[in-house]
């Protein structure tokens, strides 16, 4: 699957209600001894709109402060879905959450560690 097929894909909760769309994918480089480095997906950021994070989620002190505040405010309802909570269908159609929307952590709690 292409990143372009993952991004912007609508997401529904276990009851089939629309909760948002995928706006970012978080991955971690992994290396087991004697093998090549690989990059595995940790989870997905789900937001209500199309707005990009503009990189402000990456570290806490990224300026200018006004823009950081604005991006955080626009993403205050966005949540982070760990890889095992979201199923992506192979064809078209929404991605489906395995847990309730409200059980997912807020993006601001996960992505802006203080």
């Amino acid at each position: 699957m292409r990143a372009s097929e993952v991004l912007d894909r609508p997401v529904v909760d276990p009851e089939g209600r629309r909760v948002g769309r995928i706006v970012e994918v978080r991955a971690t480089p992994e290396q087991s001894p004697g093998t090549q480095v690989i990059m595995v997906v940790d989870g997905f950021v789900i937001a209500r709109g199309h707005l990009r994070l503009l990189d402000y989620q990456r570290y806490h002190e990224h300026g200018p402060a006004l823009l950081r505040w604005l991006v955080k405010r626009l993403h205050r309802w966005s949540r982070f879905a760990p890889h095992d909570t979201l199923t992506l269908p192979d064809g078209p159609g929404p991605a489906r959450l395995g847990v309730a929307w409200t059980e997912l952590p807020y993006l601001l709690d996960v992505a802006w560690p203080d």
């Binding site: 503009l54 990189d55 570290y59 990224h62 300026g63 200018p64 823009l67």
Partner: peptide, 16 residues
């Protein structure tokens, strides 16, 4: 330009 000028990955100590 304004956002990247604040990005330490790009500019290190030379950020805005």
């Amino acid at each position: 330009v304004l956002i990247v000028a604040n990005d330490t990955d790009y500019l290190g100590e030379h950020v805005n």
